[in-house]
Write a protein that binds this DNA or RNA. Structure first.
Lengths: 123, 123
DNA sequence: GTTGACCTTGCCGTTGGCGGCAGGGTCGGA
DNA sequence: TCCGACCCTGCCGCCAACGGCAAGGTCAAC
C-alpha cells in the first residue's frame, strides 16, 4: 500500500506518516518511481504509535518502544525501559496538569471574588 | 528607575519587560540616552500583569485589563469585558486540562495493566 | 494528450513567553 | 584611561507535532 492508503487505514495523514518516518519510528520500502510502499504490519505499527501518542507520550518516548511496535503493544510484555519512560512521562504530565490546575483555580477564585463582591451588574 | 531595577523589583527580567512593552502592556519614558525610565506605578502594573499571567491568562487576554492595571486588580470593580475574557480563558484552561488528564489517565491505565499483567521481566 | 489524483523533497508557519546572542552605545568609578 | 555594569535594537531559538505550500515527477483513465 502507498502512503495515502496507510494514512486512511490508520486515521491519520500522509504528512504525519512522513513525520514519523523522519523521526525514525517507521520505515518504508520504495517503489521504482520513488513512492513509499508499506505492508500490512505498518498499519499495526502506526496504530500503536498513535495509541502511545494519545496516551501523552512524545515521539521521542515512543522510540523506546520500537522493538515491540509490531505486536500488540497493550498486551506485550512491558520492557523495563518502556516502563521507566512511561513512568517519567506520567510524572511530567502530572506536574504539568498540576501547574495548570493551580493556575485555573487561581483564576476561578479571582472570578468568584470578583462576582461575589460585585458592584456593577450584568455583562 | 531603569529596566533592571524594575525587573528586580517585580521579580522578572528586563527581557520580559521589553516583551510586555512590545505587546503593548506597559509603556516607558526615555532618558536622553535612550534608556527606558519607569516610575513607581510601573511596579504595581507589572505586578498585576504577572498576577494575571500566573492565573493562566495570555498576554493578549491581559490587554483587556489595561484600564485597571494601575490599581489593585484583585479588588477593582470587574469590567464586563474582563469577566468575559476571564470566563472564556477559564473554559479554555478547563478543556486543556481535561484533555491532558484524559491522556494521563490512559497512560496510567496502560501502566497498571502492564504491571499487573506482567509476564516476562526485563527487556 | 491531457486532465487529475496521487506521490516526492524541502522548508516555513503555528502557539506563547520569553532566552540568548550579536553588535553596539552609555555611564560611573578606580 | 579603561574596566565593568548597565542599557539599546533586532533577530533567531525553543518545545511538539505536524499543516501547508511550492515545485516538481508519475500514472491511470478518458
Amino acid at each position: 500500500m502507498r502512503i495515502g492508503e496507510l494514512a486512511k487505514a490508520t486515521g491519520t495523514t500522509a504528512r504525519a506518516l512522513r513525520h514519523y518516518e523522519q523521526a525514525g519510528l517507521i520505515s518504508s520500502e520504495r517503489a521504482a518511481n520513488g513512492y513509499r510502499v508499506y505492508d500490512e504490519r505498518a498499519v499495526v505499527r502506526v496504530g500503536n504509535i498513535r495509541c502511545l501518542l494519545a496516551a501523552g507520550l512524545t515521539l521521542d518516548d515512543v522510540r523506546v518502544f520500537l522493538p515491540c511496535l509490531d505486536g500488540d503493544v497493550a498486551a506485550a510484555p512491558p520492557s523495563d525501559r518502556g516502563l521507566q519512560v512511561a513512568l517519567r512521562r506520567l510524572a511530567v504530565l502530572d506536574r504539568r496538569i498540576a501547574a495548570q490546575t493551580e493556575a485555573r483555580d487561581r483564576l476561578a477564585a479571582a472570578l468568584r471574588q470578583a462576582v461575589g463582591g460585585r458592584v456593577s451588574p450584568v455583562a
